[in-house]
Amino acid sequence: MKTVNQKAWFLVLPVLVLVAFSAVIPLMTVVNYSVQDTFGNNVFFWAGLDWFRDTLESERMWASLGRQLVFSFTILVIEVVLGVIVALNMPKRGFWVSFCLVTMSLPLLIPWNVVGTIWQIFGRVDIGLLGYTLGQLGIDYNYTQDAGDAWFTLILMDVWHWTSLVALLAYAGLKSIPDAYYQAAKIDQASRWKVFRYIELPKMRGVLLIAILLRFMDSFMIYTEPFVVTGGGPGSSTNFLSIDLVKIALGQMDLGPAAAYSIMYFLVILLISWVFYTVMTNLDREGGTR
């Protein structure tokens, strides 16, 4: 007769504990807050889906989401195009390769709040190099007062900070192309554009999709840099989702609405990432079998 021994379940226990403390319990705490209300003193009331309904009806949330989408797609377009152009123009061999790689990695090594501080000062009209110079050139620039200038500064900062990442990934893709492809293209008398379109772009597609996914997720969650530079202002013109969320959660101590907000924020990121992922795997499959 076969004996049944259930003791092996204990072997799974460490993983369960780890996952519980690292993901499940924190997430459930948020879920817990999102369906309750409180008047303080640690006394909670059941609120059902009211916070979700409130958040969905909040104009402030939709405005932040809109700004967030515009910001993410703007920097994605600029950084991907610029990154590819930079990668195409980097030397392929010799001393300057390491020089370019190191120089380009520098912005990636700077902590977020330091990047914010750098640009906060850089853009100031009284002492900042950028702000002061623009002022002297007669250009009316002031990121603390003009919404357009604030957007311009934040986008410029993000491009400065992250284009290198796209460029490095694209460069890795380019380096993997064997010389024979370029030689064959010369023999076939392909123009520079056709070399890019039919050799370089297809070979870079994989890494570019990863770059787009990374940059999308990261920029959609951006908090520290705009918080340091503009703090969401002027007015609420640079109030992105994370900044808005922190204002609700810590500024107003509205834990219930903030929890509902977080969950929906998380679901939006998950949804858009899933769309990107599906599109990119479908592109691959289409290429393989058609």
Binding site: P178, A180, Y181, Q183, A184, Y198, I199, P202, G287
Partner: peptide, 8 residues
């Protein structure tokens, strides 16, 4: 060339 080059 020795190794095939095609435009994928």
């Amino acid at each position: 060339f020795q190794f095939p080059v095609v435009y994928d």
